[in-house]
Computed example of a mutant assay.
Amino acid sequence: MKKLVPQRSGGYVDNQLTAKTTDTIRRLGGNFELLIERISYRIGVYRDFRRAADTEPQVGVAVEHLQALGKTAWGLYKDIDQLPMHADALVWEEIRQAGGDAYLSLQQLQQGLVRLGAVLNSVAGQLTPYENKPGRKSSSLEHSLLSEVAAMIEDHVGNAIGKVEIAGLAAELLRESGVHGLPGKDKARKAVLAWRRKLAVSPE
């Protein structure tokens, strides 16, 4: 079984912008400090989600892990039943001294292990059909980010810049900050509109 590498999520959020990105935003004028703050925060959120998505285990690895956990749960259930009599008596006494009911405590634990094993095996079965299918990296995170940053710039400049140019500028800013998988400047507006339609949000 392949070792399940923990998925990376949370922790330090990298919301740093490159000097080139901040210079480009400053040239838009107005309260550019607020715009820099808004864009840097959103990029930080994106980086955190992208890191989690990029470190998500393959489906096959997850299936193996679920199946192994199911076997462990069932094995623990059986091992509790097979406690030697002298050890079993000491376990009961320890639970009683702690103010618990040994019979109920062990019974509930074993029932929980049976349910857990059944759930784990059920989920593994649901995922099994997908474990050998080739994956394709989703661009949803990038298109969501592009749409939101374009909206921030639209709010900032009003009608001073056309929306096609704004979308291209948003894509350029994000690429400068290390975001990959974005459309070119000439296709950025189409990507923004497509994402907003997907969310049933008016593009205008």
Results as ranks from 00 to 15, higher is better:
residue 123 V to K: 06
residue 101 D to G: 04
residue 122 S to H: 13
residue 111 Q to T: 15
residue 105 S to H: 07
residue 92 W to A: 13
residue 107 Q to K: 13
residue 109 L to E: 10
residue 96 R to G: 02
residue 102 A to G: 14
residue 124 A to H: 00
residue 114 V to Q: 09
residue 86 H to N: 11
residue 88 D to V: 01
residue 131 E to A: 05
residue 95 I to F: 08
residue 101 D to I: 04
residue 87 A to E: 14
residue 120 L to T: 03
residue 95 I to K: 07
residue 111 Q to D: 13
residue 97 Q to G: 04
residue 112 G to K: 09
residue 83 L to Y: 02
residue 97 Q to F: 09
residue 118 A to V: 13
residue 117 G to I: 03
residue 107 Q to D: 15
residue 100 G to V: 01
residue 86 H to F: 10
residue 129 P to S: 07
residue 127 L to A: 08
residue 101 D to R: 06
residue 114 V to C: 00
residue 86 H to M: 08
residue 83 L to M: 12
residue 126 Q to L: 14
residue 109 L to K: 10
residue 81 D to L: 15
residue 108 Q to V: 07
residue 98 A to N: 08
residue 98 A to F: 04
residue 93 E to L: 12
residue 121 N to A: 03
residue 117 G to H: 01
residue 127 L to C: 02
residue 104 L to E: 15
residue 98 A to H: 05
residue 93 E to V: 05
residue 126 Q to D: 14
residue 103 Y to K: 14
residue 121 N to W: 07
residue 119 V to W: 11
residue 126 Q to Y: 11
residue 82 Q to W: 09
residue 91 V to G: 07
residue 106 L to Q: 13
residue 126 Q to A: 14
residue 79 D to E: 13
residue 106 L to P: 01
residue 88 D to C: 08
residue 112 G to H: 06
residue 83 L to C: 02
residue 89 A to K: 14
residue 81 D to S: 09
residue 89 A to W: 04
residue 83 L to Q: 06
residue 100 G to W: 02
residue 115 R to L: 12
residue 103 Y to A: 06
residue 86 H to A: 13
residue 122 S to W: 00
residue 99 G to K: 08
residue 83 L to E: 08
residue 130 Y to H: 03
residue 101 D to E: 13
residue 109 L to G: 11
residue 128 T to S: 15
residue 84 P to G: 05
residue 83 L to S: 04
residue 94 E to M: 15
residue 108 Q to A: 11
residue 126 Q to V: 10
residue 99 G to Y: 03
residue 113 L to S: 03
residue 130 Y to W: 06
residue 109 L to T: 12
residue 122 S to F: 10
residue 129 P to W: 04
residue 112 G to W: 09
residue 101 D to Y: 08
residue 100 G to H: 10
residue 121 N to V: 05
residue 97 Q to A: 11
residue 90 L to S: 09
residue 131 E to Y: 01
residue 128 T to D: 14
residue 126 Q to F: 09
residue 127 L to W: 05
residue 114 V to T: 09
residue 110 Q to I: 06
residue 124 A to S: 04
residue 113 L to A: 02
residue 87 A to M: 12
residue 103 Y to F: 14
residue 100 G to F: 10
residue 85 M to L: 13
residue 94 E to P: 00
residue 116 L to N: 03
residue 104 L to D: 12
residue 126 Q to S: 07
